[in-house]
Design a protein around this nucleic acid. Sequence first.
DNA 1: AACAGCGGTTCCATACTGTGAAACTTTTGC
DNA 2: GCAAAAGTTTCACAGTATGGAACCGCTGTT
Lengths: 255, 255
Amino acid sequence: MATHTGSQAVERAGALLGVIVESGTPRTFSSLVDELGMAKSTTSRLLHALERSRLVHRDRAGAFRPGALFSLHAARPSALHDLSELARPTMEHLSELSRETVNLAVPRGGTPVQIDQVESRYLLGAVSWVGVDVPAHCTALGKVLYAYGALDLPRGALERRTAHSPVDRAQFDHALIEVRRRGWAASLDELELGLAAVGAPVRTVDGTVVAAVSVSGPTSRVNEYGITRLGDLLVAELRGLSALLGHYPARRDVS
Amino acid sequence: MATHTGSQAVERAGALLGVIVESGTPRTFSSLVDELGMAKSTTSRLLHALERSRLVHRDRAGAFRPGALFSLHAARPSALHDLSELARPTMEHLSELSRETVNLAVPRGGTPVQIDQVESRYLLGAVSWVGVDVPAHCTALGKVLYAYGALDLPRGALERRTAHSPVDRAQFDHALIEVRRRGWAASLDELELGLAAVGAPVRTVDGTVVAAVSVSGPTSRVNEYGITRLGDLLVAELRGLSALLGHYPARRDVS
DNA sequence: AACAGCGGTTCCATACTGTGAAACTTTTGC
DNA sequence: GCAAAAGTTTCACAGTATGGAACCGCTGTT
């Protein structure tokens, strides 16, 4: 029962690439053979072909990573725009449900970088943060990325912005554990009095957190809606995104 | 005379991907058929296979762009690190030749983002700019990215940082033309008195500018070395990088 | 409405190319 | 130094990729 008529070799090569790119960490030849269950010879041949096309790169240690073509694409200014595009429908939907500002951020250069935003439907809403330098530990997006290891924990003292800012390291670490437990993060009056946000992770199918989405607005309205309700809503909505990012054909054919 | 023993279908699919990713702009089906000279049927089949593997994405208009796997990779914090890795040897070499600080930047979110740096060999050298928010029009890296359209021109007034900062719009536009003519950009005392930099573009084989590299140090030493000499050096060194980024097997077999 | 033109997909017979087992070579571990 | 693991190459076979042609579904034209 073939999934589709067509090019077997290309699909197998695609499956290899999928595994290599999604796992995020360099993969050894044998781990690929094990995971996809193809003959060593076939795997070897396909990997060499992919290497010639600069789709994979084998490092000194002999492990495979995404190739120059992926780096080239990543260097383009439009690269993250593509991610925004994938996330757009979900963000629009969240915006409709909450009527608040929705943001998308990825970790880059040690801090969360906002790459897309859907404006609040209210007149009084969170304004654009794009480009503004805010301490990540006071934001929902930052906490999410920290909690799931998408961002290295901040070094040095935790800056205080308001009386509610998390500045105690032990307390902050505990907060991150709590984030992982619940699956979402909140930031109430921590960055600015009256400003609140709730954020949740965007995952690939294999569970890796690659981005975060938040809903933010006046603390009063956010509280009114319900922090937990908002958190759970985010988690539920973002689950769907994983499929877009990371669905690839099931292997293990029964021959 | 086959280039290598192996997988024709995969290599052809790889060539398709190469064209799609490198051209940076959405490609139509027929432009791909024309460029690679494969049968329409073959091209169609391969593209569908690539689509199933999320390596290409066809947008509403039916044009092909890099797929979700590329976006996924681009969203990872390590993505740009890969580019740095490719550029490292060249940057190290430039550092040895000039003994000054060498920087690598890509356009991201409307501004140049420094993604790698080799420190000056001198005690008095340009310090790390990573993360520091500087007006791009006063930097060599920024000018290069502006000049080649890798970055959209700044909106609004051009901020003045020193008496030498370019603040007149017409004059600035003219300076960019000059940058394109020479192939490199300079910034002398424009950002900070006593600080100078010379930058040049990093191109893919098809000529698209995806990044910029600069050498910076005290104006006195940079002048002593020679602005033009430095510019030409940069251009020459960076030409080699293109091959790493963009070399892919020549098509047009003679059958 | 009928039609031509264009962009893309599906069909199909042909033969070429991808396949896996096994032999072979290289590296790692002890 | 040997043995085992890791990875590459060989090879005969069959299955799959190939391109021409037919086909489909638009869009614009008279």
